[in-house]
Amino acid sequence: MTHEEIYAKVKDVLVDALGVDDDEITPTAVIRDDLGAESIDFLDIMFRLEKAFNIKIPKGELMPENVANDPNFVNNGVVTPAGITMLREKMPHSNFTEFEKDPKVEAMSKLFTVEAIVKYVEGKLK
């Protein structure tokens, strides 16, 4: 499956899960901030991805969980270097360039973009 084919399918998944219009979905769109996803929507997206691509997504693989509650990874609302290293390992599909300039914990959601999902699925299908 090509990158474009995966992108098209991911787009369909997001339109169905989030009730957004086609043209709102761009590679750089942030799932939470730009597309309005709430916490339960991530489970919905995960289920729909599993079905659309016939893959299994283990808990915490697409987006690490409980990072903010771990003092090794977050200190005073800022993700620590150890936290960033962990996130990089667990989210190789995300772009960290902007996040690393100001790694506030509330900016973590910006790591989860449409393109990150597409790259994640590409990795799963290899």
């Binding site: 916490s39 339960i40 919905d44 808990k59 969980e65």
Partner: peptide, 12 residues
């Protein structure tokens, strides 16, 4: 419909 097992999904 979507159902959540809330003890598994509420980040502590």
């Amino acid at each position: 419909l979507m159902f959540s097992h809330i003890d598994q999904n509420m980040s502590g």
